[in-house]
Design a protein around this nucleic acid. Sequence first.
DNA 1: CGTGTGTTTGACATACCTCAAAGTCTGTGG
DNA 2: CCACAGACTTTGAGGTATGTCAAACACACG
Lengths: 262, 262
Amino acid sequence: MVAHRPSTTICRFCAARPRGLCKDMQTEAEFETLQVLQYRTRSFRAGTQIYGPHDVKTHVYNITSGWVSLCHELPDGHRQISQFLTTGGLIGYRPVGQAFNGEIATALDEVTVCAVPSQHLSALLERQLSLNRRLIWMLGRDGLVTSHRLACVGQSKALTRVAYLLLELLIMTTGHTGHGDGTTVQLPLTQSHIADATGLTAIHVNRMVKQLRQDAIVDFHSSTLKVLNYSSLKQAAQVSQDVKEAWIIQSVPAPQSGGATA
Amino acid sequence: MVAHRPSTTICRFCAARPRGLCKDMQTEAEFETLQVLQYRTRSFRAGTQIYGPHDVKTHVYNITSGWVSLCHELPDGHRQISQFLTTGGLIGYRPVGQAFNGEIATALDEVTVCAVPSQHLSALLERQLSLNRRLIWMLGRDGLVTSHRLACVGQSKALTRVAYLLLELLIMTTGHTGHGDGTTVQLPLTQSHIADATGLTAIHVNRMVKQLRQDAIVDFHSSTLKVLNYSSLKQAAQVSQDVKEAWIIQSVPAPQSGGATA
DNA sequence: CGTGTGTTTGACATACCTCAAAGTCTGTGG
DNA sequence: CCACAGACTTTGAGGTATGTCAAACACACG
C-alpha cells in the first residue's frame, strides 16, 4: 500500500548514492519532499575531525561512504573509541536539552556525509513518521551495540576483546554474519585504534594480534583483515548470534497496524 | 499553545502516579487517549526477573517506582550490568527486527512498572508525535550514558570506576548535580552489583570502597551511600558536567518549528 | 541457634601496563 | 637512486593493578 522507491538510496535526506540499504525509505510524497530540500554532501579527509566534544552540533550527519570513529577523551588523556561507523551510520544526533555529548567524530579515511541541519531534522521529525521510525531504530541499535561492547570490555580478556572487535568490523563491512574463511576486508585502522576501542594498550593489542595470527584465526596486517578460521574467530570473540545481527544496519519495515485502536 | 496537564504524571501510558517528572507529557487529546487505554501496572518483588535474555519482549515497561538493573550474561558466566534505572526509566524496548537484545532486567527492590504491549506502542508511535519525541530522547540519552560508562570502564582505574558509578547513582537519585556534602541516599545494591557494573571483582570493589571511606570521600555501607566530600568525589570520578546532565531524566520540550518548510 | 548472604582481610598469582629500543614501511626531498 | 623522517609494528624486561583463593567476620532471618 505504500509506494516505495526502487530501494536504491542510502541517505533519506539527500536521497543520493545508490546501494542496497535503507529500503524502508519513504513514500512517494516524502521522497519528493526530501528531494526538494537537497541537503549538502560534505567530504572529510582521513584524520579530519568532523565534530569535537564541545562543538554545538549544528548538523546531523548520515555517512554515505568511508569510516568514522566516535571517541571520548578523558581528563587524564586516555581515549575510548565507543563506536566505529561506516556507510549508513548516523552521527551527531544529541538528545534535546543535552548541551554536548562529549564525543569526537573523526574521519578514518576519505568520508562523505549528508549533512542535515539539526533544526531541519527536528522539523522533519514532526512531519514524517518514517523518519521517526528510522531514528528510533538507529538509536535503539546503537544503544544495543554499545551495551554489548561494554559487556565485552568490562568482562573479557584481551584476546577476546580484540577478536570481538575484529569480528564486529568484519560483519559491519560484509553485511552478513555467516561468512566463511578466506575473506579479506580493508579497514582503515591501526593497532592503536583497536587499543582505544578495546581499552588496551597498543603494545598489548599487538601481542594479541600476533597470537591470533599464530593460532591461524585472523591475520590483521597493515589495514587488512584476513579471516583464516571463521568458526575459531566466533569462538574467540564469544558473541551470540543476536549480537551479530545488531551489527548490521537493516531496513525498518513499516509496522502492520493493530492494537491500541482506542 | 499546547495545553499541558498539571505536570504530575510520570507515566505517559497509564497516566498514573504523581511526581514532578515528564512535564512534556501530552496535549489534552493525547492525554485522554491514553487514559482510555488504561495500561496495567505490574509489580515485581526484589530479586525478581522482569524479563530474560531470550524472552520475546511482549511489553515495554515504564518504571514508576523502584530500581532495575539491565545485565548481560556472557557465555563464560561473567556478568556485566550495563545500566541501573529508576523511576521514569523505560526498559524492554528493542529495535524492530531485532530478535533479542540479550539483556536481563532484574528488580533490585520492590518495583512497579507500567506495562505497555509492544504492539500498542508501535501503534501509538504512529499517531502521537509527543511519544516519538519522548522515545527518541530516552534512547538517545541511554546511548549517551552507556557510551560514557564504556569510556569509564575501558580507560579508568578501579577507584575511578567505583567513584564514577556511585556519583552516577547519587545524581540519578537526587535528580540534580550540584549537591553538597552530607547527603545520604538508599541504594538497593550490594558490592557485587557494583562489581558487575564496573567490570571488577567484588573483592576489589570492597578494597576501593574501603579506600573511599578512608579518604573521607563517600561511605557506602549496607545499601546506604553517604557523601562525605562531594568535590573530592567529583574529582575521583573524573566526570565532566555534560555527563552528569545526561544522568538526569528530563522533560522534552516540544520543538519550536522552523526550518525545512519545503 | 543455625543458615545464608554480604563484607572484610590476607597471601599469592597473573594479566596487562610501562618503559625502552629495534625493526618495518611509506612518503619526501636531495 | 639514496637518505631521511615519521608513523606504525614488533620484541623484551620488569612493574603493578587487579584477579584468585581461602577464611574469618557481621548481620538478617527463620
